[in-house]
Nucleic acid binder design. Structure first.
Length: 402
RNA sequence: UGACCUAUGGUGUAAUGGUAGCACAACAGAUUUUGGUUCUGUUUGUCUAGGUUCGAAUCCUGGUAGGUCAA
């Protein structure tokens, strides 16, 4: 890309103890940067953690080994307090409201490219690098430097979605050295160099916390509370305030309005331990059998503690044509391309990590942005981020409000 | 209380008297740096007591349970 040999520029790479960041560090050295490594510890609690007792200690050991092998200085920083406050507390708060948060998007915005970034700057770094599968391209628009966030070249690993909340300022300091590579190529490089991370399994689960049993994890803060599981009949037709076919001014809010249900719309088929432990589209964990197709969570009502379910992927209540993002929760990675009230544009949108991009039209209104999809979307989930792309460039994102 | 019907794994169901299948759930593994999804695999059953038969989930009798119709 535009990463020419910029000798003397100092980069600190967030070494996690995985392959990706290891290879990223190596590539930065190749490109002539002055490279240092910093391992961040963000979590030490193992409550509800599934595998291993202290996975981060192993990661730390491996990260040190990698730094030693590459011959770069190694730093350690404990950001647990920040992580708890900015990521974990947010998670609990969102679940409590009945929404489904995305902690990793927050982790990038609040930790890696904020607190961690500042720590790196304190050490004199010009840039911070990570092992994300995404690319950055810096160009000039009207004489102003603009950073573009592009999808990773490996279509199967693209992680740009997780960075959808970054600002120009944050992007300006970021480097993604492996974004143009395929995962297989990264592993190959690691293997050639004999890096201890070459064969290490990819990490999964909430980054830094690890693979957890979510209900158990959440029960640290949110108490279990028995409630009804209400099944909506298969032929149920969701109703909203009548939707006019015309172009009257409020057709958008109506189209994006979530369906509302009442216990009278279906029948009680089971019990759950708390509506806030469930998320729209969820299949596992309901414990209700006896159907031809699986039951999926269609909606949760935290107020009355009811989980609404429907049978099968195609259940009408599970699929919606549009979603809404509040004005305050709209974020433009490219502020120079932001939309103004009254504007509408066609973009490609995804509403969860790894979802294939969907054609949609964004309508900007005074109160926020309405995203109307060409095809109805299954499991539109409040709390998750919708990110819109123009081709392979991520332009903006926002929290799905409804 | 009179008559009739039904009784299969956690749930819903299948099996001309001939080794009890399927779906859903649950569990496990794979995939996935959120939640979730998806894929693969595994476990568990003939209400009870007798009888007929070479052989019973299936036929007969009693019991128990649930349901339907009966004033």
């Amino acid at each position: 890309m535009t990463q020419h040999k910029l000798s003397k520029k100092k980069v600190i790479v967030g070494l996690s103890g995985g392959v990706d960041s290891s290879v990223a560090a190596y590539l930065l050295l190749q490109q002539g940067y002055e490279v240092e490594a910093m391992f961040m510890q963000n979590w030490h609690d193992t409550t509800g953690t599934l595998h291993g007792d202290c996975p981060w200690k192993d990661d730390l050991t491996v990260a040190k080994l990698v730094a030693k092998q590459l011959g770069i200085p190694f730093h350690f920083i404990d950001l647990s307090a920040d992580y708890r406050k900015k990521v974990v507390d947010y998670m609990f708060a969102e679940y409590e409201r009945g929404r489904t948060p995305n902690p990793d998007v927050l982790c990038n915005r609040e930790i890696k490219f904020d607190v961690f970034l500042k720590a790196c700057e304190d050490l004199g770094a010009d840039f911070v690098a990570t092992g994300h599968y995404c690319r950055k391209e810096t160009t000039t628009v009207n004489g102003v430097e603009v950073h573009r966030l592009l999808a990773g070249s490996d279509p199967n690993k693209d992680q740009s979605y997780f960075l959808c909340q970054l600002s120009q300022k944050q992007l300006g300091r970021a480097l993604f050295p492996i974004g143009h590579l395929l995962k297989a190529e990264v592993r190959e490089i690691a293997a050639k160099l004999n890096l201890p991370t070459a064969d290490k399994k990819d990490s999964q689960g909430i980054c830094f916390v690890g693979k957890v049993d979510l209900p158990v994890f959440l029960q640290q803060q949110l108490k279990a509370k028995k409630g009804d599981i209400v099944e909506l009949p298969k032929d149920y037709t969701p109703s909203r305030a009548s939707c006019h076919s015309g172009l009257d001014s409020d057709w958008l809010p109506q189209l994006a309005q979530p369906y509302t249900f009442s216990p009278a719309d279906g029948k009680v088929v089971g019990q759950h331990n708390g509506a806030h432990f469930f998320t729209v589209g969820q299949r596992k964990g309901l414990g209700v059998g006896g159907h031809v197709e699986s039951l999926f969570v269609v909606a949760t009502d935290v107020e009355s503690n009811i989980v609404y379910v429907g049978e099968g992927h195609e259940h009408a209540a599970l699929n919606r044509p549009a979603l809404f993002i509040k004005k305050e929760e709209v974020h433009w990675v490219r502020p120079d391309l932001h939309m103004s009230a009254g504007e509408e544009r066609s973009y490609l949108v995804r509403i969860r990590y790894r979802q294939p991009l969907q054609k949609a039209t964004l309508y900007c209104r005074r109160e926020g942005i309405y995203v109307v999809f060409d095809e109805p979307q299954r499991g539109i989930t409040p709390g998750q981020f919708a990110a819109w792309y123009d081709g392979e460039e991520l332009l903006g994102s926002g929290v799905i409000n409804q």
